[in-house]
Nucleic acid binder design. Structure first.
Lengths: 174, 174
DNA sequence: GTCAGATAGTTAGGTGCCAAACTGATTCCG
DNA sequence: CGGAATCAGTTTGGCACCTAACTATCTGAC
């Protein structure tokens, strides 16, 4: 199933990155920079942690995201373009992921009769079994992981992340 | 300088990912899952945005992180091991990054006389010029980007990110 | 009707990240 | 002293991303 196997997880100390840079940066920039680094490290860690418990079936968060979208479509299928939009990555990335999923027999794409440029992807029986099983496991895992968060904390986190991203989006108009 | 040139930035709509999965997930899991996806997307976007204005000199956030650490050491130099710890990535990753930086002439490593396993890295003159120039630019950019955030918001974000990461770290003790 | 442009997907080349296996140097211990 | 364990860094191979350049297909404007 072409997957990342777990084992060692170096993880390293909390990224108390570069405490001495104060010399060069004033306070607001320092704090922003620190936030960027922590954001990177956190995303990386979470991704690794999840990949670990998805190894052997779904395999990675990206693949999970696709399979969930397909599952949610309830057999109607979804165009690759739609997946691109839903995931927020490029066509090229999705193209590669879909090829791998198809190679693994979890997914099957076929050209749309109406518009022969389009590829419509559907879960195979195997794919559906895999995502269902993964979903069961995830219920348990996520419950354990998020038990220490209130709903308000999570939504505050997503709001801040969203704003953070927006701030980087287009800092170019006067 | 081996760099990623900007141009197209597909970016896609806000990852209003998978609105229909409600059928399969209960509320807390749904919210957690959504947060994970947004975390991924945000980290990716921020990384891309920063890479864009670092193209042509430093080149990427990871490289910037290393050069800053080296700069902050004020010519004393830093062992590769130290960089690994500071960045929170694996030896293998740093090994590759350092090789690329050396190839680009920004950095020079030499074996430590005391412990001949260790490599001590230092900025070259070129490397120092590059990081200084990048720093000037960053002051401007970061000021623009973070102007809409209060210090409290940023620190609340970093705190939540930190907790989020911890939650994923070791969900394995009773 | 045709032909330029937009659109959907693919491919090639490159980056950052990881795990695992390997090399050399150092330290520890009997 | 000498071999085992440990430690620093490299290499190999894989995944998820990206950009840029390409192929088909469709659409729209003349």
């Amino acid at each position: 199933m072409s997957v990342r196997k777990p084992v060692e997880r170096p993880s390293g100390p909390p990224p108390a990155v570069m405490q001495k840079i104060r010399q060069h940066l004033s306070e607001p920039e320092l704090q922003g920079l620190r936030t960027v680094f922590i954001l990177r490290a956190t995303a990386q860690h979470v991704d690794n942690a999840i990949s670990e418990w998805m190894a052997g079936s779904v395999g990675s968060v990206a693949r999970y995201q696709i399979l969930m979208a397909l599952w949610a479509s309830k057999g109607k299928g979804i165009s690759h373009k739609h997946i691109v939009a839903a995931m927020g990555v490029t066509r090229a990335t999705v193209s590669g992921l879909m090829a791998a999923l198809e190679r693994d027999g979890l997914v099957k794409s076929q050209v749309d009769g109406e518009d022969r440029r389009k590829l419509i992807a559907r879960l195979t029986a195997k794919g559906e079994a895999v995502i269902k099983k993964q979903h069961e496991l995830n219920l348990v895992k996520f419950r354990a992981v998020f038990s220490s968060f209130t709903s308000e904390q999570l939504s505050s986190l997503t709001t801040l992340l969203h704003r953070f991203r927006e701030a980087f989006a287009a800092p170019d108009e006067p």
